[in-house]
Amino acid sequence: MVLLTLLAVVAIGIVRLRNLFAVVILGAVYSFLIATVFLVLDAPDVAMTEAAVGAGIATVMMLAVLHLTKTDESRPRQPQIFPLFVSAVTGAALIYGTLDLPPFGEADTPVHTHVGPYYLSQSIPDTGVPNVVASVLASYRGWDTLGEVVVIFTAAIGVLLLLRRAQRPTRQATRSRRDAP
């Protein structure tokens, strides 16, 4: 509960602030908080990923982007009613959706009665891997992980295609400048 309150406070801070540097840092704080929430919910794998990617790499990337732009967000021309409306409606729909969810941790929910017990009981006889998260990711659902890797591959290729082109000539320019004197 404390963590969720802190999350809400940080989110409001991110919305209110205009200084993008502070927003990036608060984004990292948000990621660490949500990682702690995952840890409290006994999901150390997800927590580790969130802390490393969300709080670490994403923050560094955003700072690198910030280096290319201004550090202050310009004020919107008119009050932003429509985005507020969209997020309010989405939030309300999500809260409405949670009303139908079974109580947290209940044993006979569809999630825990479908393939979950099979993974839990068969992971060691099938694959010899005690960490069920690892065996599900790499073996049972290897196809999904392959998709994930292809997404990362595509992201890297996309960024390289977009940003490298502008970099090539400047690198040659600096080299010739260095060679000139």
Binding site: I57, V60, M61, A64, V65, H67, L68, V149, I152, F153, A155, A156, V159, L160, L162, L163, R164, A166, Q167, T170, R171
Partner: peptide, 20 residues
């Protein structure tokens, strides 16, 4: 793949920043 992607994206952004 992940190591390469993370470093590649960072290089791309940081290298872009230098051109200013």
């Amino acid at each position: 793949a992940v190591t390469g992607a993370v470093i590649a994206i960072f290089y791309a952004f940081a290298g872009r920043g230098r051109s200013r």
